[in-house]
Nucleic acid binder design. Structure first.
Lengths: 126, 126
DNA sequence: TTTTGTTTTGCACTCCAGTTGCATTATTTT
DNA sequence: AAAATAATGCAACTGGAGTGCAAAACAAAA
């Protein structure tokens, strides 16, 4: 079950994701809002946001969790097959609009695909 | 720096990866060889194997580390852009020979790409 | 607006993958 | 065989993530 009550924590976290399309790591949020809320709350609210189809989650290059706004996802249908891009210089992570072509694999059914690209982003690209 | 001395632990782990092409998670190795060696040793030997270009590592669906034999990698050149496939039923992970086409991203340089596909493997595919 | 029922939150844990320091042991070199 | 150095084991630590439960916040009813 997703978000039921609009509490202070829910509003703060919602606003944060509305500010930009960039993905945010859980640890960043914990650090950023340590004065406003407990880390447990952050984990729980993000979890519910994902249930609602408002955010989607994925793992960054060291296996840590990131969240970003969904584009056209609902709670019943999560179409987050898009790749994510993590800058190896500044650490910023973005969702890429592009589609990755998953090759047909004989005798296997592919349900989910996670694509993480690493390199230099627009700003760090000299 | 990679492997320098051929110790008992090095031989055991090397043999294990020679037995099959399937990837093995670190936790599996720790459990499997708990009688023969310490988990710290396992982490360190795997690290060196990767330095040597003998193994490559990647993260499974829950962010845990897996290792598999490299195909045509050396310590100076790691070309592990191939996708990995993790079965959602039996948990087995394989390296896929196929190539994933990474779309050209404007104003970004892509150095590394990690592709993890999830679904049903040959055995679990009913 | 006060009461009531339910959801959220904070706290203080626990859990587990992965890492580190250091003394001991094993391997290689001389 | 002795000396030099690399690898190992152990115990402790780190840090992200998750849990149980009592207290607080919220929404709705009275």
């Amino acid at each position: 079950m997703g978000i039921v009550r609009k509490t202070k924590s829910v509003k703060i976290l919602h606003d944060e994701f509305e500010k930009s399309l960039a993905a945010i790591s859980v640890t960043t949020l914990i650090e950023r809002f340590s004065a406003q809320m407990n880390k447990t709350t952050i984990y729980r609210v993000l979890d519910k946001f994902e249930d609602d189809g408002y955010l989607h989650s994925f793992l960054g290059k060291n296996g840590h969790k990131w969240y970003a706004k969904c584009n056209g996802c609902s709670s019943s249908n999560h179409s987050d097959a898009h790749p994510h891009f993590q800058c190896s210089n500044c650490g910023k992570v973005d969702c890429l609009p592009a589609d990755v072509v998953i090759p047909k694999i004989p005798n296997r059914i592919v349900d989910v695909s996670q694509v993480l690209l690493q390199g230099k982003c627009e700003q760090c690209y000299s």
